[in-house]
Nucleic acid binder design. Sequence first.
DNA 1: CGGTATCCGATATGATACTG
DNA 2: CAGTATCATATCGGATACCG
Lengths: 145, 145
Amino acid sequence: MDPEIRLDCLGPDGSVAHVSRVLRSISGRWKLHILFRLFAEPTMRNAQLLKDIPNISQKMLTQHLRELENDGLVARRDFDERPPRVEYELTRSGRALTPVLISVRGNSPACISRTGTGLQIDRACRSGAPSRGARRWHQMPAYHW
Amino acid sequence: MDPEIRLDCLGPDGSVAHVSRVLRSISGRWKLHILFRLFAEPTMRNAQLLKDIPNISQKMLTQHLRELENDGLVARRDFDERPPRVEYELTRSGRALTPVLISVRGNSPACISRTGTGLQIDRACRSGAPSRGARRWHQMPAYHW
DNA sequence: CGGTATCCGATATGATACTG
DNA sequence: CAGTATCATATCGGATACCG
């Protein structure tokens, strides 16, 4: 890679802060779970997310949804009905994260086959099978590993 | 985007865990600072990193370097000399993160111009200028924002 | 249904002192 | 030079109870 581009884009000033902001917005025990559910479904309600994300508590779901909303990744829509009806969906910025997370995912050690010289995406990456050397990331639930 | 690809690659099982692993490996108060210094310089010594990354403590530098080493992103080389000489460099996996972080960086709100319809990378992204709405990410040093 | 409020333990980071 | 050890603190996440 061109060294000038490295210094220009990835120097110690500037880029670190920008990347940090994005990482912070998706950092949290259940942020990715929520985002990935919203990648798959156009809109999701509170109860649906609680059911689809095992072990998440109401408190953390609400807290993370508020943070994602403040960071402009998720939009909250209150229909003002009785009983209450609230729906969440990705914003344009939230949807823009999809290809980025795909490229991040490609860098998971478990996703890189060591058989050939060229880096190849492993089959296990698509099935969600557990892999060796998996530790924790904010204590991810066991069924996810 | 094709809905089948979304479900296959970004369903609630599997992909969340893979992305989480990568994010965990670069999550930490100074991880990106260290990585970005090593993006710019082929090798770095302990004292150089301490000097180049203001406010970092020796404890956190060592701790994060060990974690990056365990995650296979950074290689530590001890020359067994007196006085001690130790050099750190990116592994192949570490270098493979470069384009990923560039794409992550492109999703920073401050990097997206709102003037046109198409998303455009802002000039401020290259200079590292501070931007509005910047909070903290693990309490980033002020000069970075 | 979709939340809030409160308490508490676990983890991450910082400050300081010491070492081969 | 390149660490290690110890203590203090701040934030994160879980459990539980309550609310319009």
